[in-house]
Amino acid sequence: MKAVLCKQYGPPEALTLEDVPSLEPSEGEVIISVHSCAANFPDTLIIEGKYQFKRPFPFVPGGEVAGTIKSVGAGVEGFAPGDRVIGIPGWGGFAEEAPVAASKVVRLPDGVSMDAGAALVITYGTTHYALKDRAHLQPGETLLVLGAAGGTGLSAIELGKVMGARVIAAASTDEKLEICRNHGADETINYSSEDLRDRIRELTDGRGVDVVYDPVGGEYSEPALRGMAWNGRFLVIGFTTGDIPKLPLNLTLLKGCSLVGVFYGAFQDREPARFRELMDELTGWLADGRINPRITARYPLEDTARALIDLKERRATGKLIVYTERGRDGG
């Protein structure tokens, strides 16, 4: 089978596509014949050795896939060869076959494309867990989404609306904000041309926002924190700008608000039953059309490096998909 290998830490250009032996499942594991694998920002960190977890070389990056089960290992129940599934391997996805622990495999509903399945878990799963379990977002509350035109940001807009929130989307260009409005944002802020804190105050009549969803970090985290309402919740999702902000903690005291960390990978491991509950709800919403991952570009497996470069350089809006020969048609 063909697989994209990382043999040493470096930029995406250092990745190689090679023929490697076909896989056999270990106990408690399934092998997925990959159709689609989503590219995510953590993939760019993993291959450069900047992520909190590291793999021995050589390894295959790629954290979420959709495909059909090729084989199942000892002790696996509820799955059989041929099942359409979504898998969250963490590593190993940019290949024609991916090994995934059965505990991190969920069924892909009939009628849902492989591309949509591959685009679901890391963005929508993270956001669903963040808004529902970490922020306890309530109908009628106001949600501010930073970096709102990226894949993660768009998932926050969609899920915020499904959960009954008023959503304010913040992004760096008017073109990106138009995408946000098309995905359901009620209000928008161009933080390249508008003062973020002042605009928050204007849009909330001085009250502030109940929840901030921040996957970017950098210079806009502090004004967003200053724009929080009493009892607000600031969700720390990630730092795609590369800059981890140093926030003045006296603001949490003055506003009675909370800084809430969101580590979806650890949640999957520590609370597997709850993880499955949330995934069942999320895949149901996907099948019903209540959410619709925006896939803006598809790359063949041999162009994985180009997908990661586009992601790293923030040229992407929505989700990027890498496909194998099986997934050429996206279905």
Rank of each mutant, 00 (worst) to 15 (best):
G160C: 13
K132N: 10
E194T: 03
E77T: 15
G164M: 10
L137H: 13
F239C: 03
A118Y: 02
S26C: 02
A316N: 15
E277V: 11
I122R: 02
G82A: 11
G242E: 05
G82R: 13
A101Y: 06
T296W: 01
Q52E: 06
I31F: 07
I179F: 06
W91A: 14
M114I: 00
S26N: 06
L225K: 12
L17Q: 04
V216H: 12
P223E: 10
L311I: 05
N250R: 10
L251R: 13
G206F: 04
L177R: 09
L5D: 05
E97G: 11
A66S: 15
Y264W: 15
R294T: 11
K70E: 14
V34C: 02
A169C: 08
M163Y: 13
A98D: 07
G92A: 08
K104M: 10
R84S: 06
D303R: 15
G28Q: 03
L159M: 10
A185T: 06
G164H: 08
E141T: 07
V100N: 12
L146F: 14
W91R: 07
A102W: 07
F79T: 12
A266I: 08
R290H: 10
K7Q: 11
L203S: 05
L308Q: 05
Y191V: 02
D115S: 07
M114V: 00
A156I: 12
A130T: 08
N190W: 07
F275L: 10
I291N: 11
E96R: 06
S71Y: 03
A74E: 14
N231G: 01
V85H: 05
P25L: 03
I46C: 08
I200F: 05
K7A: 06
T204W: 08
A39T: 05
F53H: 15
E194N: 01
Y220F: 14
A116E: 15
G93H: 06
F57L: 11
A95H: 03
D133R: 15
G217S: 12
R314H: 14
K2Q: 15
F94A: 04
D115R: 00
V145F: 04
S22F: 00
A229D: 14
L311T: 14
A98K: 00
G184C: 05
G87N: 08
A307V: 01
I86F: 00
E302V: 10
E175K: 14
G117F: 01
A3K: 10
H128I: 01
G75A: 11
C180W: 10
R166N: 12
S22T: 06
V100P: 09
A14K: 03
R226W: 03
Y191F: 12
D329L: 11
Q268F: 04
N40M: 04
V216P: 08
G160S: 13
L278M: 15
E96H: 09
N182S: 14
